[in-house]
Design a protein around this nucleic acid. Structure first.
Lengths: 353, 353
DNA sequence: ATGGATTACTAAAACGATTTAATTGCGCCG
DNA sequence: CGGCGCAATTAAATCGTTTTAGTAATCCAT
């Protein structure tokens, strides 16, 4: 305590100088840690502290580049400023897009997030929420992930089914989506429309299919079981769309248009159709879903239903933080609107030759 | 302290029972927190504790579902078991794929990670590492992100340029990649080959271009400046590839093959060529780079150089954890091998009609 | 019987903040 | 001149662990 004196200009240290603690700073200033903490956090208790002292404190903070230790603060305040994000797989365009929106909002508000990809494995879907909880996340956003018991922290589900246990759901207006797609095809003269449903484990599958049935009936289109296929397998490659379309073709049902579960499967479907000698859009029109990046640059460019995925992520984050701040009432769900993007994979049905 | 007695079966609490602390558990067992901590962590000091007591402790842990508070433990041990991941943008396929590999390894080893997307903004590239540091991450993985001062924690760069300041680099063998692509085209009879370079801010751009120049010379191909284009703009849509290919065509240089910087730009290029009446692969062959998911389902399916992105992420995580564990020597870089994936976008050059 | 090992624990000090309830000194009023 | 109130601080508890340095009791050998 008598020797260090020449270390008067700490400034920018090159690499490894350990950060200063509140106590050290206090000692340097001849004040107590309490005072400094109060000043730094602009606590109302600090109102009685004269500006002179406050300035002195702030100057020292600057000089030594003092930053409160986040872990210590977390422990004391019981706040981590971390939230957990559950997705099927980070590298899938759908989840990545939602995450992008989530991140945007969270970082802005001073939060960080942990990501965990469960790859639809039930054991991981069970395990990860608990693991996140143990890391004291303050809330969870579940993207396309089935329900789980949320022990005491708020949960927001993006296109998931969290209906029951207190989760807020961000979901697409599937009826509008179905209407946009079907009406578009109907207007082009299509009457025989095939549909590719999603995998059973995908939370959108059921609601979407129900919406399609409803809207088809309203418009006056009949969709016989023969023209309904379902994605199978848990990869996310276009291969699945290819396979189901092959089955659809082999089954022999006639159709002039196809409404795919997502853009990825639409890509596979287009290839299957082409190989079967039924080029898109000349003989069959195809409508995708999601409007992922590469949809616009397929050949033919994909007509699709755009989901505002980024926006959905942002909303999810915003609502979650809201629920964290005030643990009061909360809405059960928020609906966002889809949009029809017309490109080249749909065309008017050809007049009978 | 005399009243609670009937709460003998805590079991699975429905929602909001606060977790028990070590102290409570200790009180319940009539032992000190120290003992329990030692038993739980199987500390060597606990060797002298009789099995009977250990069993009692473990039983109580089970009964009350006790889990040590992670924040408290972090504070005491000065370990967060968190690492930071810097990427240009989570929703880009390239980064997402690498992240997937990173996550895989990290979660296995009991770590979580924070993601921050800087979207190539210099201020964020400057700010985020500091922010992560403040959150006491134990290391940083930088994906396609230029260098920054890593204050005291290990850094691993995936296809970044961290050459100088003590980062380990995971990089592709670009010479091999260039050789694979060029030799493939050469073997198909191509001699006039155009190249699309990446944006200036992308760390791969320069090394890759140098490798291409080198390998072209070795094989005996000349690549005149007239046939070299560069991606411009910081979006990651195929639009950029489309634009640069248009410029290339307009400039009037003759070429029968095109080597794109990545699959995304290859998609744009193919469209530009098609619109200009030069179908792929009949008149021009195109080789992409990366082998992203949808590459196989383009029309024509993309011939491309596959980067083992997931694997690169895994390796990055593994090396980083290694460096965290033992802060000793470390390798400056690790090289991974690319692979040529031949599909439909390349074909033999047509005999002069 | 004494002293050194061993056994079975525990007290208390960290870790680095935040926050509540004092404490001290001083001016001023009655 | 006693005491009230205010201004400027601070002591100390707390958050929930981990870990070091003990301590007390028992055992065994001499």
């Amino acid at each position: 305590m008598a020797r260090k004196k020449s270390s008067a200009q700490p400034k920018v240290d090159p690499a490894g100088a350990p950060p200063v603690s509140l106590k050290q700073l206090a000692e340097h200033l001849g004040l107590s840690p309490a005072t400094i903490s109060l000043v730094i956090n602009a606590s109302p208790v600090a109102d009685s502290i004269p500006q002179r002292t406050k300035d002195r404190v702030m100057a020292a903070v600057e000089e030594f580049n003092y930053r409160p230790n986040f872990t210590a603060r977390s422990l004391r305040q019981q706040r981590s400023f971390i939230i957990g994000v559950l997705v099927p797989e980070v590298s899938e365009g759908y989840a990545a897009m939602v995450m992008s929106g989530i991140e945007d909002h969270l970082l802005q508000e001073g939060y960080f997030y942990f990501v965990a990809s469960h790859r639809h494995r039930p054991d991981l879907i069970e395990e990860y929420p608990a693991l996140l909880l143990r890391r004291s996340v303050e809330g969870i956003i579940a993207v396309d992930t089935p329900v789980f018991r949320s022990k005491g922290i708020p949960v927001v589900a993006v296109s998931g089914r969290g209906g029951e246990n207190g989760a807020t759901n961000i979901l697409l207006d599937h009826d509008k989506a179905a209407h946009l797609a079907l009406q578009h095809l109907y207007d082009l003269g299509h009457r025989k429309i095939a549909v590719i449903k999603g995998q059973a484990f995908s939370s959108d599958t059921e609601v979407r299919w129900n919406a399609i049935s409803r809207q088809a009936a309203l418009i006056g289109i009949e969709i016989p079981p023969l023209l309904v296929g379902q994605l199978e397998g848990d990869s996310s490659s276009p291969e699945l769309g290819y396979a189901v379309t092959r089955r659809l073709i082999d089954r022999g049902g006639q159709f002039t248009a196809l409404f795919a579960f997502n853009d990825i499967s639409a890509m596979g479907a287009i290839r299957a159709l082409r190989e079967a000698g039924r080029p898109v859009p000349q003989q069959v029109s195809v409508v995708g879903f999601d409007d992922i990046q590469s949809a616009a640059f397929q050949n033919p460019a994909l007509t699709t239903i755009r989901q505002p995925l980024r926006k959905m992520g942002e909303i999810a984050a915003e609502i979650l933080l809201g629920r964290i701040q005030s643990a009061g009432l909360f809405s059960k769900h928020v609906t966002v609107a889809p949009e029809l993007i017309v490109r080249e994979s749909t065309a008017a049905v050809r007049a009978k030759a």
